[in-house]
Design a protein around this nucleic acid. Structure first.
Lengths: 341, 341
DNA sequence: GTGAAAGCGCTAACAA
DNA sequence: TTGTTAGCGCTTTCAC
């Protein structure tokens, strides 16, 4: 914010022999201003290179027109797409965006939220970190009238909206599909059960087993951080099992893929010996051979809907009774799970 | 920015029977304030839940303490890591961050830059979009005293700093390595030559051929958008060539990997029939079989150095003569290019 | 349809 | 070491 961009409303007022208030009103298209003067003012402002000073405006209006976004990590296609959807909506509605990464850490999440709060964002879009337990940092926001919309990794939180998919159903479908291919001893690679997405996928898995008369075997359940490293480690453990499992349902593609790689290196045939399904439809799922069966869901739309909901809330257009929006997902069946009969 | 967070400096001043300026100074640890009063003030401020109003402060100081970041896309490990590095430095120095994606479009880049400029960021960190030609939107910034630091995809731009690696050398090394494995008909999958990274990698490739007495064959050179789709398409073209090429040097891992997949599906053996090298060391390079030979470079450090340089510039600590910083890279040789002799 | 004037919360020059 | 005061640029109430 340097001097040479400081053409103020006063400067253009002076140039036109008008008052600053008239200029201010004209520039925001206030109805009480004469069309002709509006035009003159706009032209003059443009000619002089006038630019609104948002700080003065924010200071005066007590509104920043800025939305804060807190995500675990930016490094997935899923997140990048969500954010593209968010940007589309916020741009269109004149909101700015501040994005920060919690790096999957609950502690860092608290600090992100507090930083955003301090920069007085009007509202926040949040997908929770892996190990966030306590939601106090959000209830604080709500007390201060800063609305929060959760997406994907959501929280039960009175007064917050959530945008997600039916992870239970998706987990159920993926597992059922594996069962339909003849799998009976199905490993589940799950994430932290504090997070709805992982708890729901896990429960879907359990339900599918139950509905098919398969007993739950806790030795087949691995709750991890879902990194590539964990996938590899679990594969090593799987290789030591006797009898060998015949299926894997992983809560993300990263761990599914790295497990597959490790298993294949030890001579396991996929899908014949072990069938595998992942989650997220990351591009990597189409690189691995055989291509990975996975669950696809509409990242961009999630972003758009989350942003729209938040803005509606901010502008009091919100239907207050809306609490959760659930989007469609689909199981994409590929060769990692399709056994020739 | 709602009422209930509006405890001002006046409120705490009144509570302590001090003047607002003393409070202001104490809160920023101004040296002229008595330690004891500083403590009292801090305690009181905390107790009352005081929070600085950045807009008032920015308005007054004509400085936003905010840095704008413009990147092509967020969906790579490379970018996510760069941004993590940037965040680390900016947080430490009390700067905020606004991140926006140009989606590889020069047009959108212009609009990102203008939005950031309008929110009066103090400076910008930029990695150019694929097809940005004209750099006027940046020279405009410089005229207005908003410093710009480019990273990775940099520009020749008087007054801007650049952080990058030696792409020429990296391209040269990758190609030389392929040649050392016996490759003679080496395809190059390159990106838009407007971008330094792609032009340099291409030139490195050419130089390596020349230094090894191999003629440049324009039929082996594909300039594309480096998406997975392009990789697949090029692979299809390669399959129709006679004689078949015996090597591929791609300017990113995405296109290298998708080309490999397509080639393998047609029975081409890698590396024996065709050896492949990529660029970026994305995680995908260790999923594909055989693992992809690629060029690694320090994303996080690039982010840290870019942010540090920009902040130095903003705070006039800058050694003005520094123009370009070049970081180390390394060729990571894996099985996609290693032929058993 | 337009203008005058106050004030958003903070900082910094100047005074004490 | 602390206080007084003016003003950053904008919006908005009230007056005309």
């Amino acid at each position: 914010m340097k001097n040479n961009r400081d053409v103020t409303i006063y400067d253009v007022a002076k140039a036109l022999n008008l008052s600053p208030s008239t200029v201010s009103r004209a520039l925001k298209d206030h109805p009480h201003i004469n069309q002709a003067t509006k035009k003159r003012i706009r032209a003059q402002a443009k000619a002089m290179g006038y630019q609104q000073n948002k700080f003065a405006s924010n200071l005066r209006q007590k509104k920043t027109n800025t939305i804060g976004v807190v995500v675990p990590k930016l490094n997935s296609y899923f997140m990048a797409s969500v954010i593209a959807g968010v940007e589309k909506i916020t741009n269109k509605n004149g909101y700015g965006l501040i994005i920060s990464q919690s790096q999957e850490s609950g502690k860092q999440e608290i600090s992100c939220v507090s930083t955003l709060f301090n920069s007085r964002v009007d509202g926040m879009l949040v997908s929770l970190a892996f190990d966030t337990k306590n939601l106090d940092h959000f209830s604080l926001l709500l007390k201060k009238d800063v609305p929060v919309v959760f997406f994907d990794r959501v929280a039960e939180c009175h007064g917050c909206m959530s945008i997600k998919i039916d992870n239970f159903k998706a987990g159920y479908e993926a597992t059922t599909h594996l069962i339909s291919q003849g799998c009976r001893r199905i490993v589940h690679i799950g994430g932290n059960l504090l997070r709805n997405v992982y708890a729901d996928r896990y429960n879907g898995y359990r339900q599918a087993l139950a509905d098919n008369g398969i007993d739950l075997n806790h030795k087949l359940i691995f709750i991890t951080d879902l990194t590539a490293e964990s996938g590899t480690e679990i594969a090593k453990k799987i290789l030591k099992m006797d009898p060998l499992p015949d299926g894997i349902f992983a809560a993300n593609d990263t761990s599914a893929v790295s497990a597959m790689v490790e298993l294949q290196e030890s001579g396991i045939r996929i899908p014949d010996d072990i069938s595998v399904a992942g989650f997220n439809n990351e591009p990597i799922s189409r690189v691995i051979k055989p291509n990975l069966t996975t669950v696809d869901y509409p990242a961009r739309e999630i972003g758009e809907i989350a942003a729209t909901s938040l803005i509606n809330k901010l502008e009091n257009l919100q239907n207050i009774s809306v609490d959760t929006i659930i989007l469609k997902h689909s199981l994409i069946i590929r060769h990692s799970s399709l056994r020739g009969k």
